[in-house]
């Protein structure tokens, strides 16, 4: 007994040392970005900033937040993310659940049908033409409909549903529920972890989307946050075009403090999502339903 305890304690110590190391190593980039964003630009240029701000000030944030467009694009991003994620979840769940059933008519076909698109796509021109013919240019739906299902996420979700014990559904089927009712009443409640994961993945996807708004939106009032952020981040970096022409316009350079403050502003809301979702990663979500 004692020996087992000692073993268990050692085990805990070992595990926690690993976790502590992970924290130390992975916290750095974030800490660095925060510190730079709060520092004096000149101290940053001299590479004096590492773990804590040097010459603490909020000027970078003031300059970022005083731009009226950041608030507009904030609002846009939140709308696109919420609506887009909702669409994603509904469509993906429906399709993943169907695909997870071994008896589904044409199951193999549909699996290949979806997986195929992970590897082959027509490229940006035909996509643009489709979006344009559907009249979606300059509309929020141009950002949502073309990525209504992430095939990768679909497969992951299908996989999760396959892993659910079949007993819980069979009992419901005996009670006369059709598969759709089973999905809503029985399966969804025990699938919180995968829902939390998918919500996170999709939300982050929408939050970070940059290229399609760039292509499909023309009205600046509709731009999401990412366009703003990429603009700040990439501007002044030597781009291919600039190195060829040999131009550097110092008017156009942006200090790292402002860049990093923008990063913080752009990522804070989305990284806050996860801690809220964490409570759904509860162990034993299946108990009770399985027992029956």
């Amino acid at each position: 007994m004692k020996k087992a305890n000692l073993y268990s304690v050692m085990f805990d110590v070992f595990i926690n040392i690993i976790l502590a190391m992970v924290v130390v190593v992975t916290l750095y980039p974030f800490l660095h970005v925060v510190s730079v964003s709060l520092s004096d630009p000149y101290a940053v240029m001299q590479n004096k900033v590492n773990f804590y701000p040097v010459g603490f000030n909020l000027n970078a944030y003031k300059s970022v937040l005083s731009n009226p467009y950041i608030w507009i694009s904030y609002k846009n991003t939140i709308v696109y993310t919420v609506v887009g994620t909702a669409v994603n979840l509904v469509l993906t769940t429906a399709m993943a659940y169907s695909l997870s059933k071994k008896y589904l008519f044409g199951r193999k076909f549909f699996s290949i049908f979806t997986t195929f698109t992970l590897f082959f796509n027509g490229g940006i021109i035909p996509n643009y033409i489709i979006i344009s013919k559907l009249g979606l240019i300059d509309s929020m739906w141009a950002l949502i409909l073309p990525i209504a299902i992430g095939t990768w996420n679909l497969m992951v979700m299908r996989n999760y549903f396959e892993g659910l014990p079949s007993e819980i559904e069979e009992s419901a089927a005996i009670d006369g529920c059709n598969p759709v009712q089973v999905l809503v009443k029985i399966v969804l409640p025990v699938s919180k972890p995968i829902f939390a994961t998918m919500t996170l993945f999709y939300a982050v996807w929408h939050w970070n989307t940059y290229f399609s708004p760039l292509l499909y939106l023309n009205d600046k009032e509709k731009y999401p946050l990412q366009i703003f952020m990429q603009q700040i981040l990439i501007t002044g970096e030597t781009s291919f075009a600039n190195t060829v022409v040999g131009i550097e316009d110092t008017n156009l350079l942006i200090s790292n403090t402002v860049k990093y403050a923008t990063i913080m502003v752009a990522i804070l809301p989305i990284i806050m999502v996860y801690p809220f979702l964490q409570k759904y990663f509860i162990k034993g979500v299946l108990i009770g339903s399985v027992k029956g």
């Binding site: 469509l91 399709m95 659940y97 008896y103 049908f113 796509n121 996509n127 073309p146 209504a148 059709n178």
Partner: peptide
């Protein structure tokens, strides 16, 4: 047996056709 399942899959299938398979003609370039 799977008609309900197929029904709820339908929006997804349409999505794949419109936004993935139709543009694939672009591959011929």
């Amino acid at each position: 047996r799977s008609r309900f399942l197929l029904l709820i899959m339908l929006p997804g299938i349409i999505y794949y056709i419109i936004f993935h398979y139709v543009p694939m003609y672009g591959l011929i370039i």
